[in-house]
Structures are given as C-alpha cells and as structure tokens.
C-alpha cells in the first residue's frame, strides 16, 4: 500500500458505470516525513477521505476488485484508509 496525501478531486459525469457513486480523488504519494514523492495518481475513494487527509492507497487490481466485491471491475487504485499517525 502507498502512503499518500489527498491534494484534490476530479469531477467526471461521463464514465464507466462501475465508477458511479464514487468520488475520484487526486493523491500525492509521500515519504516517511510526509514530503511529496513522485507523481500524483487518481484514486477511487471508499472511506470518505477529504482534501489534506493522509491516506492508504492500494494500487493493485485483485485487492481492489475484492474490496469492491466486483470481479470484473477495471479498477486498481483505491483509497482504503485514512492515516491518523505514522510513527518511527
């Protein structure tokens, strides 16, 4: 899983049906010191994350499909948790 920060969101009305009802957020991967690292990604929000939140992002198809409960979902980037604290 990737540690990232939500930096924005995307509005899209014309999209595949499987995306209906989900927010699409722009996430910026961060390192241990919560500094930006690498390019941003779009991720489907499943935990009502908001802009500025630090989140856990899954970027792997099978995990995403099992979470969504849809074995045909063409989705692999999901926000699956909101991070309260990172120690160490």
């Amino acid at each position: 899983m990737i540690l990232a920060q939500v930096v924005g969101n995307v509005v899209s009305t014309m999209k595949l049906p499987v995306f209906q009802g989900f927010k699409i957020l722009v996430v910026q991967p961060v390192d241990r010191e919560r500094k930006p690292r690498g390019q941003t990604l779009l991720a489907l929000d499943t935990v009502q994350a908001g802009i500025g939140d630090f989140v856990l992002v899954i970027d792997e198809g099978n995990s995403a499909r099992s979470i969504l409960g849809n074995s045909q979902a063409p989705i692999r980037t999901l926000i699956v948790g909101i991070v309260d604290n990172v120690e160490g």
């Binding site: 930096v7 924005g8 969101n9 995307v10 509005v11 899209s12 009305t13 014309m14 999209k15 595949l16 995306f19 699409i24 722009v26 063409p74």
Partner: peptide
C-alpha cells in the same frame, strides 16, 4: 480511457 473529466480541483 474510462471517463471524461469535467473538472480537476487541486489545492
């Protein structure tokens, strides 16, 4: 391609 974006809001 899976969707057409109407708007992107960042910061």
């Amino acid at each position: 391609i899976m969707g057409i974006i109407d708007q992107v809001t960042v910061q």
